[in-house]
Design a protein around this nucleic acid. Structure first.
Lengths: 223, 223
DNA sequence: GCTATAAAAATTATCTATAATTTCTAATTC
DNA sequence: GAATTAGAAATTATAGATAATTTTTATAGC
């Protein structure tokens, strides 16, 4: 019982590695050695290589032929790029989801927002945040779009975790509430425009560091 | 000499298979048997499996554990989804590219538009079309965004080829010209809005078929 | 003739082995 | 002591082999 969604060793490895990269347990630039990973998972390196191809496509690893795979690095420019892509795609998804949003879904999203507010660490906050966004976007029923958004969200979360490695301050997210309110009242375009601004905020720091700066120097209130 | 960009057998295989799928030589639903492909390329099946993972990420193939890989099918709903994603992302790219567009680039794009107008078949037209879009978007310098757009463009081209399998009528693309004119005169938002409408046109047929319809029943003047 | 079932063939997923390349280490030279 | 180079160790990419699963084919029953 408790069957996993995907069955192959390769997909399991790619999921675990993606999670570690996003959480910052594997830091940018680190070499991913196929034999070592194979040994850890008790497999040969063949499925490991397949997992690498997946991570590459997600933008979490980069592979140079004959020279191995390393954890992708990311600078502020890329974080902003991801934020803008997310803004564009989430707005699209929300417009299509709007008609299919039920009160039950909006209530669940409200609950996710509440959980974000009381989160005790950045991981709990991000988990609630991701649930919020997924809940209001999933009803669009556009699978390719949702998959892209998921990948971009992972990249954003990676930045979030790396920037917030130390310390966590509780705060209330007004944007999420404003989005829900607009949606409940049928003001879809207003919800979309708050969402757009909300997501674009990522990587826009108060005291903005310059290009090429290491990401962890910067702070951003993110969603 | 004449070194290819990527060196591994897996990447070569994935490029060739992607091209065949897009051109319709491998039709939707067809099983891709790793041993057969391995034999064709004179390799073992290991690099073939890696190529499969890449195609999967591009949305050109779907893989079911233990049951093999098949060419992804696509219906009108998915074509429209891709069109809307492309519209959203190309607009984003154009806004960022606008400041970096030189007269030389715009001239090259004009030339690509001209080549599209005189194309003798759908493949030549699509080639010119892709060059046009790439030329005006690439200067945005956002690699992840451009890679996503490329994948979406491939999906669009696949639809185009499947819809146009028989017959080709010459036609002039006014949108491309209008976009260039607006860009030359610095009216970026106007160019973006023409581009958005232009790309969204894909899959919007004159005599629109209903959901679940086979894609090749429908016609659309696409970009 | 059609459906169900069982055996055979084909196919996938993975492991082990190997050649080629890269990276690391240490000795040698200036 | 720093830079260079030669050799050793590690690593990648691919091939070949194998167990498990799925698909196909052929057969038996109705």
């Amino acid at each position: 019982m408790a069957k996993e969604p995907e069955d192959t060793i390769a997909s399991r490895i790619s999921r675990v590695l993606a999670d570690r990269i996003v959480r910052g347990e594997l830091s940018a630039g680190l070499r991913l050695r196929q034999d070592h990973i194979a040994e850890e998972f008790g497999t040969s390196h063949v499925p490991v290589r397949e997992a690498f191809r997946r991570l590459e496509a997600q933008g979490l690893a980069i592979s140079e032929p004959r020279r191995g795979v390393r954890v992708a690095s990311f600078d502020l420019k890329e974080v902003r790029e991801v934020a803008e892509m997310r803004a564009a795609l989430e707005v699209l998804a929300l417009r299509h989801a709007a008609n299919h949003l039920t009160p039950a879904i909006l209530d669940a999203a409200e609950e996710a927002a509440r959980e974000g507010d009381v989160a005790v660490d950045v991981h709990a906050w991000e988990d609630a945040n991701r649930r919020f966004h997924r809940l209001i976007l999933a009803p669009c029923g556009m699978n390719r779009l949702l998959a892209s958004i998921d990948d971009l969200h992972a990249a954003s979360a990676r930045f979030l975790f790396s920037a917030w490695r130390s310390g966590w301050e509780k705060r209330t997210d007004h944007d999420h509430r404003a989005i829900l309110l607009a949606l409940r009242q049928g003001r879809v375009e207003e919800a979309a425009s708050i969402l757009e601004r909300h997501v674009q905020w990522i990587g826009r720091a108060p005291k903005s560091a310059q290009r090429g700066t290491n990401v962890s120097d910067v702070f951003a209130i993110v969603g």
